[in-house]
Simulated assay, not measured.
Amino acid sequence: MPTFDLAIFVPLLAAHMLSDFALQTDSIARSKGRPLTLLLHLLITGLCAYLLLGDFSEWRLPLLVTASHGLIDLLKTRLSTARVSEAGAFVADQAAHLAVIFALSSLDWSRLKIFDPWWFEQNPVSYLHLLVIISGIIANTLAAGHFIAKALPAMISSDPKELPVDSGLYRAGRYIGHLERLLLLIFVYSGQLAAAGFLIAAKSVLRFQKANESRRETEYILVGTLLSFTLGIALAFATKLLLG
């Protein structure tokens, strides 16, 4: 009978979120075609998996994660040079990483007696809850932000740099998106869906007040806002479901 072990899935998911988003700088992401940069990223990936899994005598599982991660990143580099959009390559890359994590979590490692983490004897529920919360925060802020930055320009027919811009705060839009999706995560988890609706309405009003009469700019703002809220709500419910 197939098994699914959350004691494997949750630490590997958290390790992936940390290594691929929180601990991966923009310069590393752009330079992963270079062997030394890719090696540095894989070392971070393997170390995160090794530490969060918590079985310091077992190296085979972190090694499998690192090897598969490196292979997927190499394939992503090839996809980036092909006729595939950045958003499509990003989705394919993350789907492949999650598929590997699902596959490894479906193996009965405890039955093979090669997985015995230290936190099994402590408070495993609290430990896994903490990792889920960390994963949810990173997914709702950094991961969703990366996807929106890649997907939004592909949704319009012209270069977004041609849209009228003013001298706003540096990277303010990115931080606003992170904060609004973090608030959605808090509202959904606490069951305050009315507050989430108020946030969506308030953000929409503020954004449209700043938009000029250009239909293209207005639609660009609308698509970006709705995409951010859609991802935020979906990831917030996914986090809540996993916490349950």
Rank of each mutant, 00 (worst) to 15 (best):
E180W: 03
W118N: 10
L36C: 00
V10H: 05
G224W: 01
P117Y: 00
V65Q: 08
Y189G: 07
L47C: 13
L63T: 10
L51G: 04
V125T: 14
T3P: 10
G191C: 04
T37E: 09
A96M: 11
T45F: 04
E217P: 00
F90H: 02
L12H: 01
A234V: 14
S31E: 15
F9P: 01
S85N: 03
F120N: 09
L179G: 15
E217L: 13
I233R: 02
L242Y: 02
L104P: 06
P35A: 12
L12G: 02
G197T: 05
N212S: 14
M17W: 06
Y220A: 01
D20M: 13
G54S: 08
S228Q: 02
A29R: 04
A89M: 07
T37K: 08
F90T: 04
Y127S: 09
R207S: 00
K76C: 06
L206T: 10
L18C: 11
F187M: 04
A195C: 05
L183S: 10
R174F: 13
S106Y: 12
P164E: 09
S135Q: 07
W109V: 04
T66A: 15
R171P: 00
H178L: 03
Y127W: 15
L242C: 05
R34W: 00
A196Y: 03
H69A: 09
E86D: 15
R30Q: 15
S85F: 05
A194I: 15
R215Y: 14
D55R: 11
D20I: 07
F229K: 06
R83F: 07
S157K: 15
V65H: 10
Y170K: 15
I137S: 00
L43N: 03
K240C: 06
A194H: 11
L235V: 13
A92G: 13
A236K: 09
L18G: 07
L130E: 05
M17F: 13
L40R: 13
A194P: 00
A22V: 10
V125P: 03
L40H: 13
L227W: 03
A149K: 15
L107N: 06
S190G: 10
T218H: 01
R78W: 14
G33S: 08
S126E: 10
S19M: 08
R215W: 12
K240M: 10
